[in-house]
């Protein structure tokens, strides 16, 4: 069972956990991203996330399907937020439910690592003296 969502409203971790909970679930692993207040020592005021929504959903679904086939997991929920996020808010939640914990840990790590490499979502950091698209330049 796969649940993929891109939302403009605050993410709800419990919704993701509830989705991956079932009678056959022996463990749930959850990754929760958080907006950090600095990058390389420079104070960040807030972040903006932008997505190419249809492709982002398609890429997130590929990650979820691969996670289900590669690891022994049967439930995964991936939610990503877009728009302006303040320090401490949650840009991403990944919850994985599996019969055994090892698979849940591995699938969750795989999902967040791959999301950061392939899903067309972009983050702009806003500083006191300007703004920058993360990773755009070498």
């Amino acid at each position: 069972m796969i649940d993929i969502q891109i939302l403009e409203s605050p993410l709800n971790v419990q919704v993701c956990i509830d989705f991956v909970s079932g009678a056959a679930t022996g463990g749930i692993n959850v990754f929760v991203g958080s907006v950090r207040n600095q990058t390389r020592g420079k104070r960040v005021l807030y972040l903006e996330f932008e997505a190419y929504v249809p492709m982002a959903i398609s890429e997130m679904r590929k990650i979820a399907e691969t996670a289900c086939s590669r690891f022994q997991i049967d439930r995964i929920s991936i939610h990503h937020r877009t728009g302006r996020l303040e320090i401490g808010e949650i840009p991403v939640v990944i919850a994985v439910g599996a019969p055994h914990r090892q698979a849940a840990f591995e699938a969750c790590q795989y999902a967040i690592d791959t999301l950061k490499q392939t899903v067309p979502i972009w983050k702009k950091e806003h500083f006191e003296d300007g703004e920058v698209w993360v990773a755009a330049h070498p």
Partner: peptide, 10 residues
Amino acid sequence: VALIPPVSGG
């Protein structure tokens, strides 16, 4: 067709 600069989600 879409231009996809380096992604930075998560």
